[in-house]
């Protein structure tokens, strides 16, 4: 599955980092970096990350 983050919306709250630190990370400049291609067995975590994002910046695609 693909993970999209709208960087116009992202405000680096780090909720996604707390849920899936192997996929999402905040860089030195506080900007989010993430893996765009994630194995399907991580779907539950990715949905949790999307739901936890206060800015609704995370979108998933099959």
């Amino acid at each position: 599955m693909k993970v999209h983050v709208d960087m116009n919306l992202c405000q680096s709250h780090g909720e996604c980092v707390a849920i899936a630190p192997d996929v999402f990370e905040l860089g030195d400049d506080d900007m989010l970096v993430w893996q765009e291609e994630v194995p399907d067995d991580r779907r539950a975590d990715m949905e949790a990350a999307a739901n936890a994002c206060p800015m609704m910046a995370i979108r998933l695609e099959d």
Binding site: S12, H13, G14, V17, A18, P21, L26, G27, D28, D30
Partner: peptide, 8 residues
């Protein structure tokens, strides 16, 4: 303050 990357 302006320290997002340290919060996790």
């Amino acid at each position: 303050v302006n320290a997002a990357r340290r919060l996790p």
